[in-house]
């Protein structure tokens, strides 16, 4: 009985389908561009985008206005009369304490800090990551665990002992000292990054190279390095932005004449002497932010990959 009625229903359904053939819905389902759903999604995203873009916009317009216009107008209005004088002043003649040669000095210092720090920290970390990934020995993982746990320790806890050690070594306040500090504190994240990357490469490749008789450095330089360009780019992005944006180590480990750009910027803007020149301040702020912003906009997806790799897998 049940079987027969089911059969009948199927047959009826079949008829209904054949009735509709040619007349019912067909092909792609039409969609409206301005559905309620889309308005909510794009509306929210647009409002959020405005919030995120606003400060950049304010920085730019403020830095292009003269002081009189700033005093009269509102910070969101575009400049009536565009002037590049604040930029020139911020770069070449803004004062920090007794020095009045602008941010150019800090920029130079930051570059001189950045280049060796990035190079040294990445070399050290990539070799460590490679050794950890492919040449495991007893105890290595213990040190690595300490390193990773150490990444969570506030820098403030470790800063003073480092000051003492660097002073004993005679490199406190020097460029070398700061490079060492950046290498040390870049170590956890970078080593993790490289270790995870090298671990993700097929282990059989490493085995094949060992059977081919290649040693530690031969495998590193001839097999691993040529395959690791992307991760090196990610590491460079991470370090360039990180070191450029550093403030704490700059303050602690350099002297006023070797202050990096961030420290100098803060001193210019937050100095209590003299009249506040907001346009110069914003130009200086933009100048300092320009390097990481440039890196960010140029690298795009790799930047995202870098922070995601560093963060999620951690």
């Amino acid at each position: 009985m049940a079987n027969i009625s089911a059969l009948n229903q199927t047959a009826a359904g079949f008829d209904a389908v054949s009735d509709q053939l040619g007349s019912g819905p067909r092909g792609k389902k039409p969609r409206r561009t301005f559905s309620g759903r889309n308005i909510v999604i794009y509306g929210t995203l647009f409002v959020a985008a405005v919030y995120y873009l606003l400060p950049l916009y304010v920085m730019v317009v403020t830095s292009l206005k003269g002081m009189p216009e700033i005093r009269l107008g509102n910070i969101f209005s575009p400049p009536v009369e565009i002037t590049f004088e604040p930029w020139v002043k911020a770069w070449a003649s803004a004062c920090t304490g007794l020095n009045c040669d602008g941010l150019s000095r800090g920029f130079g210092n930051s570059v001189r800090i950045l280049l060796p720090s990035v190079v040294v920290s990445i070399i050290v970390a990539s070799v460590s990551g490679y050794a950890l990934a492919n040449w495991r020995f007893k105890g290595a993982d213990l040190f690595f665990s300490i390193l990773i746990v150490g990444a969570f320790i506030p820098y403030q806890v470790m800063i003073y002992p480092i000051v003492i050690v660097l002073r004993e070594l005679g490199i406190y306040g020097t460029l070398t000292g700061l490079v060492v500090v950046h290498t040390i504190f870049g170590m956890p994240i970078l080593t993790l990054l490289f270790r995870n990357y090298f671990t993700s490469l097929p282990e059989e490749l490493f085995k094949a190279a060992r059977i081919d008789g290649a040693g530690f450095w031969q495998i590193y330089f001839r097999i691993m390095l040529p395959m690791s360009l992307p991760i090196f780019v990610v590491a460079i992005i991470l370090q360039v932005t990180g070191i450029w944006n550093d403030f704490l180590f700059g303050v602690v480990f350099t002297r006023p004449d070797t202050y990096p750009m961030t420290v100098q910027l803060n001193n210019i803007v937050n100095s209590v002497q003299g009249v506040k020149e907001y346009n110069v301040n914003m130009a200086a702020t933009l100048l300092t932010g320009a390097v990481p912003l440039f890196v960010y906009f140029v690298s795009g997806r790799l930047f995202v990959r870098g922070i995601a790799a560093g963060a999620v897998k951690g």
């Binding site: 961030t262 912003l293 930047f303 922070i307």
Partner: peptide, 13 residues
């Protein structure tokens, strides 16, 4: 790109 760019900037900026 818009949501993430502030992350590239330092806390000072």
């Amino acid at each position: 790109t818009i949501f993430l760019y502030p992350f590239a900037l330092s806390f000072i900026v």
